[in-house]
């Protein structure tokens, strides 16, 4: 029996489209904190011999890591969940001072159809927190939008040494099933 899609998840291979956008932007380093929404992209990054895939213990390590990568001439991206944005706030002062390409791909929790109230405060504060720290945000809630939104955020990051975040909406990812 084939596995049904996650309840409420958008049809369409948006993780595949996202990964294709990373490859087209010549990303060489994918830093991540394990996350269900990013699971397919993380697995593909680990399996791709042309990519360095670095598992972090906390998202803020990824800010420094991508700065170091850029000092060495390498293009990287940071995958995380919205709760991880809160862990990054002071580290984002690196970007404000140094300016380097800092593309963040953030899967949202604490919004559409959330079951866990403990996810809500940071989910609600994610976009405003990023913008307070000088990160440009954009958002994808539909599978067909993911590739263009991610590609645009990567272009902005690397062409302008900007910090950019794409918020991948919870409706795109689908409901987390708690009780089967």
């Amino acid at each position: 029996m084939s596995r049904p899609p996650k309840d409420g998840a958008q049809s369409g291979d948006w993780p595949g489209a996202l990964f294709a956008a990373l490859k087209r932007a010549e990303i060489r380093h994918v830093a991540y904190v394990p996350d269900a929404g990013h699971a397919q992209v993380i697995a593909r990054a680990i399996a791709d011999p042309a990519l360095i895939a670095t598992a972090l213990t906390t998202e803020e390590e990824g800010i420094g890591l991508l700065l170091g990568a850029w000092l060495g001439g390498q293009r990287g991206v940071l995958l995380m969940q919205s709760s991880g944005v809160g862990n990054c706030i002071n580290a984002l002062s690196l970007h404000a001072n140094v300016r380097f390409p800092l593309p963040l791909l953030v899967t949202m929790r604490g919004e559409w159809a959330e079951f866990n109230p403990w996810q809500v405060p940071m989910g609600r504060a994610t976009q405003a927190s990023l913008e307070l720290m000088g990160v440009s945000t954009s958002r994808a809630d539909k599978a067909e939008d993911v590739e263009a939104v991610v590609a645009g955020a990567l272009d902005l990051a690397f062409n302008g040494e900007c910090a950019t975040a794409v918020l991948l909406g919870q409706r795109l990812i689908g409901r987390k099933v708690w009780i089967k």
């Binding site: 800010i63 170091g68 000092l71 001439g73």
Partner: peptide, 22 residues
């Protein structure tokens, strides 16, 4: 040399990113 004046806790992650890139 790259000197930090803030971002406390970031020296090792920055060095890691640089070491992996070069």
């Amino acid at each position: 040399n790259f000197y930090l004046w803030g971002g406390m806790g970031s020296a090792v992650p920055i060095a890691l990113g640089l070491a992996l890139a070069r």
